[in-house]
Design a binder for these strands. Structure first.
Lengths: 338, 338
DNA sequence: AACTGGATTGGCAGCGCTGCCAAATCCTGG
DNA sequence: CCAGGATTTGGCAGCGCTGCCAATCCAGTT
């Protein structure tokens, strides 16, 4: 149980072969149910495996099988953060999809840092994964070079606003922003503000704002004011930011938030300040945080197919086929706050 | 880019050695900064690596180095779910702690299914990880046998209410329940109900309730009623469950929730139903969901050191030393709802 | 009884890298 | 200019497993 003791020699395939009185390759075949072997052999091998408590060594298996059909059974995943609920949901989808084919995932978190992402990609590739799933389309030149050179299937998820390396699964963040703006405009709101987080690092949030602002401008009602807080999105940040925004620009009739948790914070601000929603102020979020559906007034927001994106990413990873962009779209939830 | 093409032969260490005009072991030494070599050699190796775009194969490295100092650089993690915010937070802590030592984590999700957990433990062990981090203390006999036989460091996290296999990092869920009950009793609440999720599967939630109910009973004010919904915790479930509970048992003056998201749902129910908090009904949650701090009335709840648990788990994994229980405690947030 | 084709089986090279050890090289003082 | 020790280097045997291929076995044929 203690790592410091020289690690006990574990049971190997050849131990099993000896115990079962058969050859190594026979054991290997039985274990992988590959090739032919008799029922009797199978039973004897199974018995020996159980008796010795044999655990196959996949490092060796993958090494030996590399460049062959067996191939590796690891998939590398790079996500920017675990703080935002989006990413656990994506992982959940991926885990589901991968399970189906018996792959295991090695996960690394980049903290929205492109340099770090590059390093992590290198580290993941060194495990010779069957494929890599990364987030977004923007990577350092070094990262792109590594991905290209790796020769494995690459899936870039979440964002479809731009050219991808191989498989791209997600939706258009710009279109999300645009749709949000159009919804607000359609409801008659004209003096619209924005509350957001950390746009320099979260490039997708930046694209949403760009789409949103462009649509407003095109309609002749440009974004009136914005309050952007550094750091990740959170309810507390949303509440504080909305307070500041309203103190500064008092005549806003609607606010678009970079994320539902920010919007929830904004909702709490209005509740505490006694501002009626959507009469005095309309709120519009992003991301279909489940919680927002349980609010007394369900939040008006955009729901993105996070789980599905993960599933499709996992699925496509195993499949062959040409490079491709899979746009899974998004859904506008009318809600009651805008 | 396409998996179907016979995977191109990747650059190997011996390619680098040839290109740099040195021996393989020299390249290996330079790359691992282990042993001695001249500056000139180092430069030539570095140049060749860069020129050829060499990516070391850690499968081979770990295999060759196994049973030796180099050892494996993977850590296996089994968590029951990604839906509950707790687990991403734990992962975040682990990722932080592991980064420091350059380990990579292979993550598997058991869906609160012990059989599945056992299978996943087997799968993870087959990667010959440096250690395994699992959730909770309850495992199938088969899982325990595998963990024991693996000879690697095991960390069981989150729960300290019982005997562990090796290292245990967490807090007492029973004590959490007890402390919650004592807080409510101390505030004068006497007719107390409970709203929870899926206790059969989430054993920790079950232990919290057990501690809570025991403390109430000991004080002579036994739990008056409970409403338990199948399925994972969520705000929507909390809202609905509270509604049902109150419809059935109208004289409750406080409700304990199995989770903050459930409690938030309960809060929304009160808001919508016009019940004053905590005058008409007090609410007490669990888990210090960040969002609850931004509520107009901050939720009274218990904050658990999730991030820290992950960090300590990762840290202990690499360290030697005897089996041990690390109780990181928890913090009661007074809030304004109870 | 010899023969045939398919089902089973075992031997062994080799996946890419590291550890060990011997060989080569470099210094420094005498 | 050389011995003797320190530093640097290369060769090679594995790590545990899989793929390939030749060997063996067996039931059915001729």
């Amino acid at each position: 149980m203690n790592v410091h003791q020289p690690r006990q020699r574990l049971v190997t395939l050849s131990d099993v072969a000896r115990a079962a009185g058969v050859g190594e390759s026979t054991v290997s075949r039985v274990l992988r149910k590959h090739g032919s072997f008799s029922k009797g052999t199978q039973d004897r091998v199974a018995e020996a495996v159980a008796r010795l408590g044999y655990v196959p060594n996949r490092l060796a298996g993958s090494l030996a099988g590399s460049a062959n059909s067996t191939g590796p059974q690891l998939v590398g995943i790079v996500i920017p953060s675990l703080t935002n609920i989006v990413f656990p949901d994506l992982l959940r989808g991926i885990a589901g999809g991968l399970d189906a084919v018996g792959f295991q995932s090695v996960i690394a978190v980049s903290d929205y840092d492109p340099e770090r992402e590059e390093a992590l990609i290198g580290a993941l590739l060194s495990w010779r994964p069957a494929g890599l799933i990364v987030t977004g389309l923007e990577h350092t030149p070094g990262a792109v070079a590594r991905l290209r050179a790796s020769g494995v299937r690459i899936v870039e998820m979440v964002d479809t606003d731009g050219p991808g390396l191989d498989i791209v699964v997600g939706f258009s963040n710009r279109a999300v922003g645009r749709a949000s703006a159009e919804h607000l405009l359609g409801r008659g709101y004209r003096r619209i503000g924005f509350v957001g987080h950390d746009l320099d690092r979260d490039l997708r949030a930046g694209k949403r704002l760009a789409g949103f602002a462009a649509a407003l401008a095109a309609a002749g009602h440009p974004l009136r004011d914005r309050e952007i807080l550094a750091g990740p999105s959170s309810a507390a940040a949303g509440r504080e930011a909305l307070g500041r925004l309203l103190a500064r620009t008092t005549d806003l009739d609607a606010v678009y938030f970079s994320n539902d948790d920010m919007a929830l914070g904004g909702y709490f601000h209005c509740l505490a300040a006694g501002l009626s929603i959507p009469g005095r102020l309309a709120l519009f979020g992003y991301n279909g945080l489940d919680i927002t559906a349980a609010m007394p007034q369900p939040l008006s927001t955009i729901r993105t197919p996070r789980l599905r994106i993960g599933e499709v990413a996992a699925e496509r990873l195993g499949a062959g086929g040409p490079a491709e962009i899979v746009d899974l779209g998004f859904e506008l939830i009318e809600g009651a706050t805008a």
